[in-house]
Design a protein around this nucleic acid. Structure first.
Length: 628
RNA sequence: GGGCCUAUAGCUCAGCAUGGAUAGAGUGUUGGACUUCUAAUCCAAUGGUCAAGGGAUCGAAGCCCUUUGGGCCCGCCA
């Protein structure tokens, strides 16, 4: 049991008291208290004030007296506060034991939101024509972190990456290679994805402005892409395959894995669209326009003042959104699966198998990556389209809310950083643009961070081997980048600045990782080994109790994060844990205190902190070194 | 014109879902703490008409309405 046990005990008893007083059920709060107001607080008296025609303070008085008549093992004192709040003080000897014991279990922090059901998380989904930039990284890290939190919340999670390998952006790349004479070999030392994005794509799109005849070529290339046997499609497969591999390397380096890759080209060739189209017609969800501006088109009628959305053009071809509908339905398992599955040839971290769809034969057994629920991570500029898909899916599937669009605001570049990249915005932040070449590559951010952290680590550990320094620097760099991407709410724009965003101090991953290193060193240096066979009543210092309490809040935070699909909840929790530990570290000595029993008790607490922080950081995809 | 998001300390952000106590962090500035379990740390000072106005409430940063500033979206492009 965790801190939640004392909350549950109080809640139960308060309900019993209400019953005694013959008061209707009300929903009061019982929450961890603010600093200086005991350990747990309830607002129950405010809510009763009107009903009982008494002041909150009087009610708190009554309730605190009554509370003592009920069974309570975890509460040592109830105190009515003059403000009206009812404050509870914990029996820390018991709570210490409960929380510290529980924290040693592997399943500590697990909650049961999913009831072992299956959920799909789709994220990344970048056109395979360029390297990943810092904006894509927000999507990837949000998606990966949410996946990890959902796993901890007892969902079986299938992580998908949709590869847009047949759109305009790919066609543009092919125009560059086939007609503008770009070599298929990048300059020495440059990754192929960087070369495609930085050079071929940017320069090709620039040429469109100068030479309008290229537009026809582009159109032709796009058409040829549809025929999988054409030379163009074969070349596209080769090039997008290489870019995709480079992109995946970037993701894997950031500790992000996937379960399956879905290719847009295959969705199109699979015939899923025709099936969904029939279904939409049968269910009367779309209409054929006989007049007006959309004459001759199949449209999804807009709600109220919303514009109708064209699904099938008057020439019979399907629009962009028409590719997303079958994919959404496929993810929810609403369609017969037309795909076979084969293994992606490269190995992911922890040797997790990465599958990919194929329309050809496969010797592998059929896989199933559909879920009862689906979370699609796409930035909120696509909110309108996603809303249409969500509504359609609600019509298809009986469980309401089965399809969720998890939106987030974009990453922009600070005025300074944009200027460094050659665009003067008058100090204002700037939207990134792949076409204009205005972006910061994820790989280069990682490299910058790594060089910085190598220098810092060397400074502090001059005797350390280079390989060890590299390993630590990697952990800190990945941590820093990942933490930056999720520490604020999804609806806040992240303004990325090459200087400021790479800080290693303050509310950053290294701050948190550092507390882990401190804890590790204490454990390493102690002659005792951490154990639960200790006298729990020895932990009485406020700094100790605050730390125990913070550890005990883990499952409550996971529940919050999982329920609201909110990664930042966990990043804040990690930060709070670290703050509590630093405060403990400054004020409470563990080693050389000439009291073995006390050292053992504190060591148990330090160990408990260390493994809880590791588990919480693991939800963020961050590992903490033992030394740094 | 319609829709979505946003406004809290000089700057970057928590808190808002579920209204209640003294509105919290980081950063910045100023000062202090390393012969100590690692100073990527800690402590102190500084800093707020919670965008503005109205409403409902015993009580609003939070709920409702209006206004304003900022961002994004609204193609038979993807």
């Amino acid at each position: 049991m965790t801190f939640k046990s004392i909350i549950d005990e109080i809640e139960n008893n308060l309900y019993k008291i209400l019953n005694d007083l013959n008061v209707d059920k009300i929903f009061f709060s019982v929450e961890p208290a603010k600093q200086g107001f005991g350990d747990v607080s309830s607002n129950i008296s405010f809510l009763l004030a009107k009903k009982l025609k008494q002041s909150p303070q009087e009610i708190s008085n009554t309730l605190s007296k009554k509370y003592n008549q009920f069974n309570h093992t975890l509460v040592s004192k109830v105190e009515p506060h003059p403000s009206g709040y009812l404050n509870f003080f914990a029996n820390w000897e018991k709570l210490n034991q409960l929380i510290l014991s529980e924290s040693n279990l592997d399943e500590f922090g697990c909650v049961d939101l999913g009831k072992n059901s299956t959920i799909v998380v789709e994220h990344t989904s970048v056109n395979p024509n360029k390297a990943l930039h810092i904006g894509h990284i927000r999507n990837i890290i949000v998606g990966d972190t949410v996946s990890r939190i959902l796993k901890k919340s007892n969902y079986k999670v299938n992580v998908l990456n949709y590869v847009d390998d047949s759109g305009l952006q790919v066609a543009d790349l092919l125009v560059g290679f086939k007609f503008l004479g770009f070599s298929q070999t990048p300059p020495k030392g440059k990754k192929f994805d960087h070369y495609c994005g930085d050079d071929v794509y940017v320069q090709t799109t620039k040429k469109y402005e100068q030479d309008s005849s290229l537009e026809d070529i582009r159109k032709k290339v796009l058409e040829e892409l549809e025929d999988e046997n054409s030379d163009t499609a074969q070349l596209a497969d080769k090039i997008t395959g290489k870019v995709l591999e480079n992109q995946l390397e970037t993701c894997w380096n950031l500790e992000v894995n996937y379960d399956c890759l879905n290719y847009e080209s295959q969705i199109i060739r699979s015939g899923l669209w025709a099936k969904i189209f029939e279904k939409l017609k049968e269910m009367n969800l779309i209409t054929f326009e006989k007049e007006g501006k959309n004459s001759g088109c199949w449209v999804i009628p807009g709600n109220g003042k919303e514009e109708d959305k064209v699904l099938v053009r008057s020439n019979g071809t399907a629009t962009y959104i028409a590719k997303d509908i079958p994919y959404a339905a496929w993810k929810l398992g609403l369609l017969e699966d037309p795909f076979n599955y084969k293994k992606y040839p490269k190995i992911q971290k922890e040797s997790q198998t990465l599958w990919q769809t194929t329309l050809g034969n496969s010797t592998e057994t059929k896989q199933n990556f559909a879920g009862e629920k689906v979370v699609t991570v796409i930035d909120s500029r696509q909110a309108r389209l996603q809303k249409i898909i969500t509504t359609l899916m609600d019509n298809f599937k009986s469980i309401e809310g089965a399809y969720v669009h998890l939106g987030y605001e974009s990453v922009t570049l600070s005025g300074d950083t944009a200027k460094k990249l050659g665009i003067d915005t008058d100090g204002k932040q700037a939207q990134m643009s792949g076409r204009k070449g205005l972006y910061v590559n994820a790989d280069s951010v990682y490299e910058l961070l790594k060089n910085k952290t190598i220098t810092e680590t060397k400074k502090r550990n001059p005797e350390m081997s280079l390989s060890e320094i590299e390993k630590i620097a990697h952990q800190i760099s990945v941590g820093t980048l990942r933490y930056e991407m999720i520490k604020q709410d999804l609806d806040k724009i992240i303004t990325f600045d090459l200087e400021k965003s790479l800080s290693l101090e303050g509310d950053t991953a290294p701050y948190i990782q550092y507390t882990h290193a401190r804890a590790s060193r204490i454990i390493e240096k102690s002659k005792q080994s951490p154990s639960l066979d200790i006298d729990f009543s020895l932990l009485i210092d406020q700094n100790e109790l605050d730390l125990v309490r913070e550890i005990g809040l883990f499952d409550i935070q996971v529940h919050d994060a999982g329920k609201n699909l909110s990664p930042k909840v966990i990043s804040r929790y990690c930060h709070d844990l670290a703050v509590a530990f630093n405060s403990f570290y400054e004020n409470v000595k563990v080693l050389e205190i000439n009291d073995i029993a006390l050292e053992k008790a504190r060591l148990c607490l330090v160990y408990s902190f260390k493994i809880t922080l590791e588990r919480a950081l693991n939800l963020l995809g961050i590992t903490a070194p033992n030394k740094m």
